[in-house]
């Protein structure tokens, strides 16, 4: 296997968590806060605290979304990434937000928040308000903000991401596309691997393997090895099993660095757990399996590492409260 780097929880001693290199994020420019004040994505914080803040922000937004749903304030569908936040912040923080491109799928809120910090625009979008990030046209699965895009068609985003990567290759940009284990069944994924390799597209395929697709466990739908899928296409592969955002970010930086430097695609496999339902109230997994998923919740271990996590939590919670309030006050999109 080509450059396969499977790491397990605890393989890496805490002391090796260095400060991550981050390009000044463009999202910062839009915030009206003075530099010294808190930013929503925690750009002023040290790495561990920053990643924690982004994770808890995602968690609180999505828990609130489920609440709003049960109160009848949301409609359609909304896929939360509760349990998978470490992937979102790990991968997105390895990117250059000024030029890199992100393609996400139905489960896109976490990726979106980590990229943009646009909590209010997201909540308003999902509530169908004119102030939503797409004016209430797209909703939960169809987001667009600068170079972030998502679409609710499994697999279809993969060739589009390849094209985006090729279009911006000369500028040194990298495109990332998020896929799930269930989406390994879509032919578009394999056409994309071939196209990306043949044309030398700087695209990072990220597979978030939570071992389930909607209600169907992986063993009923996915044959062979997900990790080994890209290598025969001549695509360098990284794999990780651990749910630690700092480790994921380091690995993603290595992968992104390779993609950018070589102008080649890369396959990054991340074993993860979906703690929440697929959408809402549709979790059919047995209690034991759910317990196993919850045991890998990435938030509690991070709280051990961030001294002032309560302060961060309070900051994020009030942000979410305000976002919901202002979204609810905005007009419904009616065209």
């Amino acid at each position: 296997m080509n450059e396969l780097a499977i790491r397990k929880d605890g393989d890496i001693p805490a002391s090796s968590f260095g400060e991550l290199k981050l390009v000044p994020p463009s999202a910062l420019q839009n915030l009206t806060l003075p530099q010294a004040e808190r930013t929503l994505l925690g750009f002023e914080l040290p790495t561990v605290a920053r990643l924690y803040q982004q994770m808890i922000l995602i968690r609180l937004v999505e828990e609130r979304l489920l609440e709003l749903f049960s109160q009848g304030l949301l409609f359609g569908t909304t896929h939360t990434s509760i349990g998978q936040e470490a992937n979102a912040v790990g991968v997105i923080n390895a990117l250059d937000r000024d030029r890199d491109i992100v393609w996400s799928n139905h489960r896109c809120h976490g990726h979106f928040i980590a990229y943009s910090g646009e909590v209010e625009g997201l909540i308003a979008e999902i509530m169908g308000r004119v102030t939503g990030i797409c004016g209430g046209r797209g909703g939960s699965q169809h987001l667009c903000f600068r170079n972030f895009h998502s679409n609710g068609i499994q697999g279809g985003i993969a060739p589009v991401a390849v094209g985006c990567a090729l279009a911006r290759k000369d500028e040194g940009a990298v495109a990332v596309v998020f896929l799930g284990d269930g989406t390994m069944g879509e032919g578009a994924v394999y056409e994309s691997l071939n196209l990306a390799s043949v044309f030398g597209a700087p695209v990072l395929f990220v597979v978030e393997d939570n071992e389930i697709a909607q209600t169907t466990p992986k063993n009923l739908t996915v044959s062979g090895s997900i990790i080994a899928r890209a290598e025969p296409f001549g695509i360098r592969t990284f794999a990780y099993d651990g749910n630690d955002p700092v480790e994921i970010c380091e690995l993603a930086q290595e992968a992104v660095g390779y993609v950018r430097a070589e102008g080649r695609p890369c396959w990054l496999y991340l074993r993860t757990e979906r703690i929440g339902p697929h959408s809402k109230g549709d979790d059919t997994r047995p209690a034991l399996r759910l317990e196993q998923a919850r045991a890998r919740d990435p938030i509690p271990p991070m709280r051990q590492r961030v001294a002032d996590f309560e302060e961060i939590d309070a900051f994020c919670r009030s942000t979410v409260d305000r976002a919901v309030e202002s979204a609810a006050a905005a007009a419904m999109a009616r065209g």
Partner: peptide, 25 residues
């Protein structure tokens, strides 16, 4: 001028991504 694999869905998707980021196809 690019000759492509026999991947009609993939090609149109790739072209769509390129067009989206400023390269008409």
């Amino acid at each position: 001028v690019w000759t492509t694999p026999i991947s009609e869905g993939g090609i149109v998707g790739m072209a769509t991504g390129m067009a989206l980021k400023g390269r008409p196809v």
